[in-house]
Design a protein around this nucleic acid. Structure first.
Lengths: 339, 339
DNA sequence: GTGAAAGCGCTAACAC
DNA sequence: GTGTTAGCGCTTTCAC
């Protein structure tokens, strides 16, 4: 139904290439009247070039796809990451396609997602930290689809945050305020589960320990597996924070809202009685109290990954060195100098 | 660089149509050996059909685009909505493209986003509640792009939640627990700003008032413009909740975390001393305490919108009646029977 | 059983 | 200044 060059050429009484050249600004050679006429008819008819035809000619779709799980609870791409990707792609007039892969099917040997089955994008951003089947990787490899991994620690073709340095930075931030009694709190991972968790769980902790050690302060690590079931989390946290020997400062891997809420329920005032820094994709202000946050450089990861992918699309088969992005402290109102 | 039918036809020593027919399962007529050979070479070479060529032939891209602001803080599509859209489209092998439009440019007269400039999708889901320029609508109209609006109240071609009924439902939920002293709290909108706010702000309130009136209970409406600046929010809320005449139950338009946190800071215990229900896209458990929530039917809106769009794509130019979706109560642990 | 030819919308090379 | 021709990858029709 849509309007094609042919339609315009008929309406304007000229040939198809004439229309094409004029509409693409390459029609200087043509008579001014012809040019005007063509431009006018194109506008009147509401012409839009057919992206399929363009893609075929150019051998490029000007589109990349983001591969992620369909389970939106599990692995949503943070808004800023998407923003970074978008803003990098936009100037190149490139588009983003979402490819959400159903976890159930992903393991089945025969399943090939449509996005891989068809050649429809110039490259892939893969947003899987784990649970991405070997077979998918083989497929991507076999099809030679330019791909960059997001938030996965590899030597090549990936962009991820520097969680170790982030851990150091956040700890030093509290140390600089005079705190010594700083606990590291990760209520999503029990100590025996740390090994199989996302690398950020290990690296942030390691960064904390490193910084504490360097400052001659005694690390205090609180781990626990209450991340999944919110039912256990609050009792666990109130028990911890209600005790007399509770830490004076906390660096939290996540679940910052729970911790602040538990503190409030225990009558522990933030920041007067407890300084509190958390890691997060973005500083949160849901509490009405902006949380001092070591912000994951999501946007930067998105930008870097997109830029790398563009690179890879242009020069296929080259391995690109991993890009590691630094955290940023977002000042909030949950920390006070140690007394 | 990618493999085409031509490549396969060369490698297998047959003609292109032969390959095409066989790969598309329409090659019963062909010799078994030919068939096997073609299938094998296709697999070996890693053939993937070119989506551009297919789109050209079929006159369909099997792709829809979601139009929204590039400002990811403002109008992100809720995960469940996207999930609903995806799950509706997936069985049809259709893809979702993200079109994030920069707010700054959107007002400029000359700007036409690439997604509209090119014919590259079969239809549009428009996720703008307000701030979508008239000119964009004209463009979409002019280009006759099948479109459905999400979360916008119109007579036609849109899907949105029934906020009025949602307000009634949430209020009746608290009334059924014996509560009478139920306040409606919206700290994002001052009363004089309600008129220009999203319709949900008015409708949920109206639903509350309606249900209270029907029950013979006295409405108590607390409005205030502290949504944007988190700095004011906490003081405002603690002042409210610290007072002796604070309500025994609250129905909150949003900012549920702030309210619960403020209550905790005031020493007001939830749910013993304060029953608390909030509207939200999804029940939140960040607090470690699942909030009893009137859930916006995001997923349902996504499903409905996607289904309508598919309809519209097939039969262009038909107006579809608006689809209105009901809320759902998600039980949490923030309510108790009135004493 | 298989291949040749045409056409989808577009652009680039070349002829007049 | 403008039109003709060819070809991108694919499917469909039809001839052999």
């Amino acid at each position: 139904m849509p309007v094609t060059l042919k339609d315009i050429s008929h309406a304007a009484g000229v040939s198809i290439p004439t229309v094409s050249l004029i509409l693409n600004g390459k029609g200087d050679q043509y008579n001014v009247n012809t040019r005007k006429r063509v431009l006018k008819t194109a506008k009147e008819l509401g012409y839009r070039p057919n992206a399929g035809a363009l893609a075929m000619r150019r051998g490029r779709f000007n589109t990349i796809a983001i591969l992620q799980t369909a389970d939106y609870e599990k692995n949503q791409l943070p808004g800023p990451t998407l923003g970074g990707i978008r803003s990098t792609l936009e100037p190149k007039d490139m588009h983003v396609m979402l490819a959400a892969l159903p976890d159930e099917k992903l393991t089945s040997k025969a399943y090939v997602p449509k996005i891989l089955r068809e050649w429809m994008t110039d490259g892939l951003l893969i947003n899987y930290t784990h649970g991405f089947p070997e077979r998918m990787i083989e497929l991507i490899d076999e099809f030679r689809i330019p791909s960059i991994w997001i938030n996965t620690k590899q030597k090549h073709d990936c962009a991820y945050p520097d969680d170790l340095a982030g851990g150091v930075m956040a700890t030093e931030y509290l140390l600089a305020l005079g705190h010594r009694d700083i606990a590291y709190m990760d209520v999503s991972h029990a100590s025996d589960k740390l090994e199989e968790a996302h690398y950020s769980a290990r690296d942030r902790l390691a960064g904390y320990e490193q910084a504490m050690k360097a400052a001659g302060a005694k690390p205090r690590v609180i781990l626990g597996d209450a991340g999944g079931s919110s039912a256990n989390r609050l009792p666990m946290l109130t028990a911890l924070l209600g005790r007399g020997d509770r830490p004076r400062a906390i660096l939290a891997y996540g679940h910052s809202i729970s911790i602040a809420y538990a503190a409030a329920r225990c009558g522990v005032r933030i920041p007067e009685e407890l300084s509190f820094v958390s890691f997060d994709a973005k500083q949160r202000s849901d509490l009405g109290l902006p949380i001092t946050t070591a912000e994951v450089p999501c946007m930067e990861v998105g930008c870097a990954a997109a830029k790398m992918l563009l690179d890879k699309i242009d020069r296929v088969d080259r391995k690109l060195p991993a890009k590691v992005l630094g955290f940023r402290m977002a000042e909030g109102r949950t920390v006070a100098p140690a007394k």
